[in-house]
């Protein structure tokens, strides 16, 4: 090692630089993948920030209890409105048709909660003061669990909702009779 110290030093620096270049390329590749997936696949961050006063949700606006649940929109999509509160979701069971664009709009009436539908990419925080919006699409009928995923005080472990996905035609038949749907019995 002592024969040509300057040569060794130069070799070391070259190896370092090569590795640094590889590292930058790895990172650029990963970031590029993330950006590509973001633009060409459905899951995108919530596009707009929207606010809602948690103390008056029940008085007026879109989160009054009679307006919660699944609503068929004129464009054929379905809007699901829900509230998280200590310690339940309203509606407790969300009804969703297959093969339909679902827009979930949810907020919290008190503390921070989370809304997670197991086995799907539906996963959002419910922060009091703000409305969380997320879109989804379900292919097969079935039942999913919808736990609260953020600690919301001592009853957090009991805050589990449900999601029921039914066949689109069945949902449409129900929607023609009732404006807001849910699977709460």
């Amino acid at each position: 090692m002592s024969e040509h110290p300057t040569d060794h030093a130069a070799t070391a620096i070259r190896a370092e630089k090569n590795w640094a270049t590889i590292a930058v390329l790895i990172i650029a590749f990963l970031a590029g993948m993330a950006a590509f997936a973001g633009i060409h696949q459905a899951t995108m961050p919530q596009a707009r920030v929207e606010t809602a006063d948690p103390t008056t949700l029940h008085l007026s606006g879109e989160f009054v209890e009679s307006n919660l649940g699944s609503a068929l929109e004129p464009d054929g999509s379905v809007t699901v409105r829900a509230i998280g509160q200590q310690y339940s979701f309203t509606p407790q069971c969300i009804l969703i048709p297959t093969d339909t664009t679902i827009n979930i709009r949810a907020t919290s009436a008190d503390v921070i909660h989370g809304l997670l539908i197991q086995g799907t990419t539906v996963n959002t925080m419910l922060v009091p003061g703000y409305i969380s919006v997320q879109s989804a699409r379900f292919r097969k009928p079935g039942e999913y669990l919808m736990p609260c995923q953020e600690y919301c005080s001592f009853g957090h472990e009991g805050m589990w909702g449900k999601v029921k996905v039914i066949d689109k035609s069945e949902f449409m038949a129900m929607a023609s009779k009732q404006e807001r749907l849910s699977c709460v019995k």
Partner: peptide, 22 residues
Amino acid sequence: GIPKLTSSASSVQPTFKTSDVI
């Protein structure tokens, strides 16, 4: 992240009286 006013889409009003206490 500039907030937008909440959608003005008409909401279904309750057919019964609900609590109006804050």
